[in-house]
Computed example of a mutant assay.
Amino acid sequence: MTFRDKLGLSLVPVLLLLSGCNPAPDIVHKKLHAEQGTYVADISETGAFSVVSTNDNGILLWPRYANNAKYSWRHDDETSQVIAVDISPDGTVVATATRFEFALWDATAGDNLGFWKIGSGGIQDVAVSNEGSVLILGKRDGTQIAFSPDSGRRLEFYGHTERVNSVEVSANGFYVLSGSNDASAILWDTRSGQIVHRWQHKNRVTQIALHPEAKYVFTSGSTDNAKIWRLPDGKEHSRLKFIDRQRIFSSARFSASGDTLLTGSPSRRINLWDTQSGESIRHWNVGLVDDRNPNSAVVLSLHYYDNDNIVFSESSAGLAEWWQLPADWNQE
Rank of each mutant, 00 (worst) to 15 (best):
A95I: 10
S129C: 02
D76V: 03
D106K: 00
I83Q: 03
G110H: 12
V128E: 00
G114L: 07
S80C: 13
Q124H: 13
V128T: 00
V128Y: 08
L135Y: 07
F100S: 09
L104Y: 02
D76I: 04
A95Y: 00
I87Q: 03
V93F: 09
S133H: 13
G132T: 07
N130C: 12
D86Y: 01
V128F: 10
L135P: 00
T98Y: 08
L104E: 00
D86T: 05
V126C: 08
A97C: 01
F115T: 14
D106E: 13
T79M: 14
E78C: 07
T79I: 13
T79L: 15
N130H: 05
D76F: 06
A107N: 03
G114Q: 03
V134Y: 09
A127S: 14
Q81L: 15
D106R: 06
S133R: 14
V134S: 06
V134P: 05
E101S: 13
V94N: 04
P89R: 06
V82W: 01
A97Q: 04
T96P: 01
A84T: 00
S129K: 11
V128L: 05
P89N: 06
G122Q: 06
I123F: 12
D111Y: 12
A127W: 04
D90V: 03
V93Y: 09
V82Y: 04
H75N: 12
A84Q: 05
E78T: 15
S129V: 08
I87F: 08
S80N: 14
Y71W: 14
S120R: 12
W116M: 01
G121C: 02
T96V: 12
W105F: 12
